[in-house]
Write a protein that binds this DNA or RNA. Sequence first.
DNA 1: CTGAAAGCGCTTACAG
DNA 2: CTGAAAGCGCTTACAG
Lengths: 362, 362
Amino acid sequence: MSRSPLHSATIIDVAALAGVSKSTAARALANYGSVSEKTRERVERAAKELGYQPNSLARSMITGQTHTLGVVIPDISSHFFANAMRGVSTAAREAGYELLLSSTEGDLSLERRAIELLAAKRVDGIIVAPVSTEETAHLERLENQGIAVALLDRPAPQVKSASYVSVDHVAASSMAVNHLIDLGHRHIGIVTEAVMPPDWQESLDTADGTLLRPSAARLVGYRDALRSAGIRYRDEYVALSAYAKTSARAATERLLRQNPQLTAIYCTDSELSAGSFAALQDMNVACPKEISLIGFDDQDWATLVRPRLTVVEQPNYQLGMAAAEEALAAIADPEGHRRRRTLNGRLIVRDSTGRPRSGRPA
Amino acid sequence: MSRSPLHSATIIDVAALAGVSKSTAARALANYGSVSEKTRERVERAAKELGYQPNSLARSMITGQTHTLGVVIPDISSHFFANAMRGVSTAAREAGYELLLSSTEGDLSLERRAIELLAAKRVDGIIVAPVSTEETAHLERLENQGIAVALLDRPAPQVKSASYVSVDHVAASSMAVNHLIDLGHRHIGIVTEAVMPPDWQESLDTADGTLLRPSAARLVGYRDALRSAGIRYRDEYVALSAYAKTSARAATERLLRQNPQLTAIYCTDSELSAGSFAALQDMNVACPKEISLIGFDDQDWATLVRPRLTVVEQPNYQLGMAAAEEALAAIADPEGHRRRRTLNGRLIVRDSTGRPRSGRPA
DNA sequence: CTGAAAGCGCTTACAG
DNA sequence: CTGAAAGCGCTTACAG
């Protein structure tokens, strides 16, 4: 009770009160070395009386471990990352790790600063969904500092020692488009954030698609599916949109106006799906009668709207867990091989997709 | 280049390479005290060459500051907290603070453990949305440790020195119910997570409602509004629901079945709103014709569904920012008065509320 | 089982 | 402006 109000008790205070040396007090409190039962009890009583709270900074200084994982993501408020974070959080807690979180707003310089601060705080590992696939020097530097890196959702090929956890976006995307093709659709538009990677022609023929950023990989999956079905890929069916509902809405309206022959639309992202759905409503386009729609990510509203939305579901929570697991594995075994862990998306067919009408009124 | 791979360079290595004492190197690198321009340059060059990364643990040991805020919330994946976190994140970053995040799943013992670990990590302040209003001994203890506390969304009256940031739930709730009353509704049900606090009778007559947990405060606001309008409060119009869509759905169906005279329903939470909306759909109840519905929290889907949902909107992002600001203010001025900061909810009238029908078919 | 010494990587007075 | 010493609160060998 009534001790110095601001400066909390240290191990020395506890030792003094218990009448032992600080080494002994330390052993008793942190459970290492050997201490007699009596001494331990005495020390513990003293600690309780003083309201002793260990200082893990001091401990970390010596052990070189902070039991802390850094998490660097573009936007904590997004559905995907908020859910992934819960997975990260669960896995971390079970392993006895804390989380140091930075939300970077998709800003590369903020990401750099965040990484630097986390390194200064000596986190044991970092889970990052990098803003850029190429600009990753700040991440590569972590290797030399002995900080484990696990990439979440977005690849960074130059960070050699990092594990990478994501959905197989190419396959998930193809699955969605194949569903439309199976229904008989031949004119399928796509609303996406991505620009096609410059080397997409090759990408189509290799498995490298999995090393593209998700949005690009999804676009590749779209092309793959069309190609396999012998359907021509048309640039004019690709509507680029910024990552925002209003933008997706405008992009969708443009897409439909300029391509009256379209009978289906596939959205590569949850945010974009909401925008496209709103566009159909605004334009009074009957769904799925005139236009079939597939969204990405199974959100709350998918079953609340009419028609219920057919979506590609991603295992958000599991992705977060897996990323944390990989980071922890890399911490436990710094020399171990880093892994590429791919989870599967799942198509949930609801009411927003159906057979195409012969023709849609322009 | 080519240094010891795992052990990164310390200030001593830098000093040696630059040919100065470690005190001087430290001054040059951390920008305190005075160093000649020449020396500073030499030290900086050495630091760069060695890839020197400061160790902020060591610094924190001495300064007693970690420039870190702990954040303890029940569920990072919820719409409310995910958005609030973005506000916290922005405010913290602007002040040069990092965030140590714990998601506690609404489990009190996990919250206790999280608080203890944050204290051990010597965070400068903690933002917490406590699981319990009463069981807050672990939070009270933080005061003695000189850790600033800001409460987010949920009060904890016994934590005397803590600031508290939330929406005025009583007023927001009354506003929603008044809207229904103004439309002519007299039989208004409520779907809520809360049990009425034991002393609610008094609560109704005082401003203490603001010290209730949000769900209870919202229930009080509901009663207030009814009472002011001279409408009798009936226990059977209160449907208790667990915090889950399926539970809210079942609760809503029960409520409507057992009370055919109801013409309106008010939901006190975003999760519950989704469940209630789904229930109306399932039961084929025309909204707003047969039942008017008001939801809580303006989510994505509120404008995507039909009818568009009338809601009470909370400023989630701003609540997070305000909580961070309060924590930072308390750190800057430990003796300052703690504040109660109340933000306003806002009623957004859309299409799910209308005039009541004379009678609803049972 | 227990204690004294050294040290983690810095910052903080205090001399020169 | 610069350096040597002490110290933040612990843990880690090393003796006894």
